[in-house]
Amino acid sequence: MISPAGFGALLSEFAENFESRGELGASVSVWIEGEEIISEAGGWFEAERRRPWTTRTLVPVYSATKAPAAATLLLALDQHGLGPDTPVGEVWPGFPLPTATFAELLSHQCGLAALDQRASLWKHEEIVAAIEAQTPAWVPGEGHGYHPRTFGALMDEPVRRLTGGPLAWFWTSRVARPLDLDFWIGLPHSQHRRVATLYPGKASPADFKEGFYQAFQDQGSLTHRAFASPKDVRSVREMNDPKAWSAGFPAMGGIGTASALAKFYQIISGRIPGPFSESIRAALATRIVDGDDLVLLKPTAFSCGCQLDPLDDIGRKHRHLYGPATKAFGHPGAGGSHAFADPENGLSFAYVMNQMELSVMPGHRATSLIDALYGS
């Protein structure tokens, strides 16, 4: 159970992030049983410290977008009488593994993390053509590996075929707008003034001793290729371009507040009414794969579009990015943004910031908040 002491400890750690951990601007939100218990913000939009960061400040959250996008695809399937067990080929005939299910696709099992055919992130049709021409690096049953960039088109193309419009449009019209979620996949120009500037994390020599970063520097490795395809929009500077904010990249282009992200996880946990059926909520929450990740080169676990903490052979967590509960699920974003649901405690959490860390997993500024909340 979460105690009031945990709320105070979290706020103390949030303040410490600014005092000693290099935080520039950030927000944190905690909801329990449909109510926002914590909504805290501090710092600045930009390094020049002209505009104060508030709870309404928007910021790009990179791969924390993947969970809302996956929920959108599941909703589109559900509205056509389809679901996670539907073969992808029934919706997308050109998909290179037509008998693979949407559950296998959304849990990163289809081996399409890296593309041999060059395609631009700005050109959806090019990415689809490259995916259809790709020989999978592995198939379901042979393992899983994180799809950092191709995951966007892998979700977007089925939504387009099912609804006649892009995933960004379906998210806004069927989820975000009806539920008053200040989280955008495709930000309108009218909201651009609310977006904070991102700043890249800095590498230390110790970072490059880790297997992931060694592979990331090797241009021939699967890890490097996965993070380089589709090409374009590779630097933080490019994600500060309003063109990227409005593009609606489903794998990495979401922009929002901590409060909106945490509220989204209340909705998909069933604590706030929404359009997601019980079967969709179960698909997002239920662990499908757990083990060594062929791209991230560390243990990972996935449901249909969300991450969970991986477990060892006797069910203990390898790490606690989602708190102590084994059924907690969510998704981080590169540089430190993080959000998740803990159904056992009726809780959801989100943290967003603009001074990034060099990490594809949540860093110390996020985990210190989670540890404090749970009294770890």
Rank of each mutant, 00 (worst) to 15 (best):
A176C: 02
E46F: 00
H224W: 08
S235L: 05
E344N: 12
V175P: 02
A206I: 12
R50S: 14
S269N: 12
G248C: 05
I288R: 15
A130C: 10
G375R: 00
L297T: 06
I2V: 15
G315V: 05
R174C: 11
P250G: 00
S20W: 01
G145Q: 08
S20G: 09
K327M: 10
L198G: 08
L297D: 05
A334P: 00
D371F: 10
S235Y: 01
C304E: 14
E278F: 08
A226Y: 00
E13V: 01
Y199S: 07
V91L: 09
D85I: 06
H189T: 12
Y62R: 14
V295L: 08
G274A: 10
Q109I: 03
A5M: 04
T99L: 08
H80K: 15
L373H: 05
L97D: 08
P310W: 06
A76T: 07
L181T: 13
A113T: 12
V28H: 07
P52V: 09
A70D: 05
R160M: 08
A206N: 03
R316I: 09
F264Y: 07
P343D: 01
R174D: 01
G94L: 07
I2D: 07
E19F: 10
S259P: 02
I267S: 01
A114D: 09
L82D: 06
R365S: 01
K263L: 12
F151R: 00
A67C: 15
S303R: 08
I2S: 13
F95E: 04
P205A: 14
E46V: 06
S12M: 09
D313V: 14
V128T: 15
F227V: 13
Y199C: 06
M361P: 00
A130K: 03
A339P: 03
G333L: 05
K317C: 07
K66V: 02
L97I: 15
P158A: 10
E90Q: 14
G145Y: 03
S279L: 08
R56D: 15
V61G: 05
E132K: 06
K317S: 13
A366L: 09
L154H: 07
Y374I: 08
F249C: 09
F170K: 00
F45Q: 13
Y146D: 06
I255F: 11
E48I: 09
I131D: 15
V88L: 00
L296S: 01
P52K: 14
K327H: 13
R319L: 05
E40H: 10
A260S: 10
T326R: 15
L74F: 01
V91K: 05
A153G: 13
S39I: 08
G42Q: 04
Y62E: 03
M1Q: 02
G305C: 12
I314Q: 13
A133L: 09
E19K: 09
V128Q: 11
R281P: 11
S246P: 04
V30I: 15
H192T: 07
L162S: 05
G336Y: 14
D371Q: 12
E46N: 06
W53G: 11
H318N: 13
P96E: 12
A26E: 03
K263V: 01
D85Y: 04
L154K: 12
K202D: 02
R237W: 01
G375L: 09
S235W: 00
G145P: 11
V61H: 04
